[in-house]
Amino acid sequence: MTKLTGVTHRKVQVPSNKERTAFLFMRLSGVFLLFLAVSHVLVQHVVNSVHDLDIQFVIERWSSVTIRGIDLLLLFFALIHGVNGLRNILEDYVHSAKAMKVINVLLVVFLVISLIFASVAIITFNPGT
């Protein structure tokens, strides 16, 4: 019912599809990455010199479960955000639906393999072995 003063707010059913999910993920991961990526750059490149980044530095940082958790979050958000961005750009240039399907499969394979390898490295890292 329309009101004659103030703003009428309505709830509506909205279609859900992969583009909407991707959009919401990009917004959410973008907010997280603002903190995660900036703090990563500050810690790795400003507070510490890139010349000091050796295995000892990694051992010290990854001795903390919190830092490992933060790095895992950064890995997942940044990689998926980046690959989806790349998919968006490629969709603007590749007009063949078949070619785009192949590209999407390749991107997913690259994404999954990268996530698995990097996650295994972060989670199982043990300087003693």
Binding site: K3, T8, R10, V14, P15, N17, K18, E19, R20, A22
Partner: peptide, 24 residues
């Protein structure tokens, strides 16, 4: 438009793969 009764039908079109999500 608070008087219009078909927002959901329009949202189906603009919420599609080739709808607003293409805006960069």
């Amino acid at each position: 438009d608070s008087r219009d009764q078909a927002p959901e039908e329009r949202l189906k079109v603009v919420g599609d793969t080739f709808g607003v999500w293409r805006c960069r």
